[in-house]
């Protein structure tokens, strides 16, 4: 069945088009358009955000407001913490970075992707809008499972807000099987000055898993500290829903998550110096 196509000029138009709850949102389109082509997604109405004016980063009082249609390429040249560097590591070439959005990635909620763990580590808040009004959901509560989020079908992600860092250092690392693979495990480290580290691991479980660890007393390659990280990550993963995809089983993800976590923390600590 041929869907209706709607490219609203503003947010109100978008939420109106989605009000029936049978719409598919097209952001950058890099995932959803192929999904439609191959019959994996269908809906009565296709709501194209490209004309709705949702692109761009603005500095708000409680942080950077990143419009949902801000592309990876836009982020690379922005000063949004962490995401500006993460964006340059998105694969698929400039063609994907020129169209794909961090917001779209968040809404897609593939556990094996870069953005989710970063948003959680940054303490971002997801701004959802519907015909009934707007709400904000902390990133940590946004991701509910593999390809599942707190977004209702009648809602659009309008933007997400990245709070000010307050001098915290950041580190990011992703592990993939080859240049073209989905990330297998990612780790974003948030290192507030002097305080313990918060490492958020992506890809190792169905949703990002946050782990708080003490700073190493010697260095990040200290075996005792790495053992500490390893245990903390394992304990956290034990409580999480495991994630397996075609590329790597849950056991492998769990096995390397502490390694990637420790390396990511190492990067943050290096930056902190």
């Amino acid at each position: 069945m041929t869907p209706r196509y709607s490219a609203p000029r503003d947010l109100a138009g978008v939420t109106a088009a989605l009000a029936d709850g049978d719409g598919v949102v097209v952001g950058g389109g890099t995932m959803v358009v192929p999904d439609m082509t191959h019959g994996r997604t269908s809906a009565a109405v296709v709501v194209d955000l490209s004309r709705a004016g949702l692109a761009g980063v603005t500095a708000g009082e409680d942080g950077a407001v990143v419009g949902a249609m801000t592309t990876y390429t836009d982020l690379i040249t922005s000063d949004v913490p962490l995401l500006s560097t993460v964006a340059s590591g998105i694969t698929g070439g400039p063609q994907i970075r020129n169209r794909g959005t961090a917001g779209g990635s968040a809404c897609y909620a593939n556990p094996a992707s870069d953005v989710p763990a970063c948003l959680v580590a940054l303490g971002a808040r997801m701004r959802l809008a519907s015909a009934g009004g707007a709400r904000e959901v902390p990133a940590a509560e946004f991701f509910l499972g593999g390809f599942r989020t707190a977004r209702r079908p009648d809602e659009v992600l309008e933007a997400f807000v990245v709070p000010p860092l307050g001098g915290a250092a950041l580190g990011y690392l992703k592990f993939k099987l080859a240049e073209g693979s989905w990330p297998i495990v990612t780790a974003a480290t948030f290192a507030p000055t002097g305080g313990p580290l918060r490492i958020v691991v992506g890809g190792a479980a169905a949703t990002p898993v946050a782990v708080d660890v003490d700073r190493p007393s010697v260095g990040s390659d200290d075996p005792a500290w790495r053992e500490h990280v390893r245990e903390a990550v394992h304990t956290a993963l034990d409580a999480a829903e495991p994630w397996t995809d075609v590329l790597a089983p849950a056991a492998y993800r769990r096995r390397i998550a502490p390694v990637i976590a420790a390396r990511s923390a190492g990067r943050a600590l290096e930056e902190d110096r």
């Binding site: 097209v26 389109g29 890099t30 995932m31 358009v33 192929p34 194209d48 698929g92």
Partner: peptide, 25 residues
């Protein structure tokens, strides 16, 4: 699926994979 790049065009000044863009967009 957006993976191979053979469909690349320059869309409003930036490269894009034209298999992952709806014509109407």
């Amino acid at each position: 699926t957006g993976d191979c790049g053979a469909c690349t065009v320059v869309l409003d000044g930036r490269t894009a994979k034209s298999c992952s863009v709806l014509a109407l967009s």
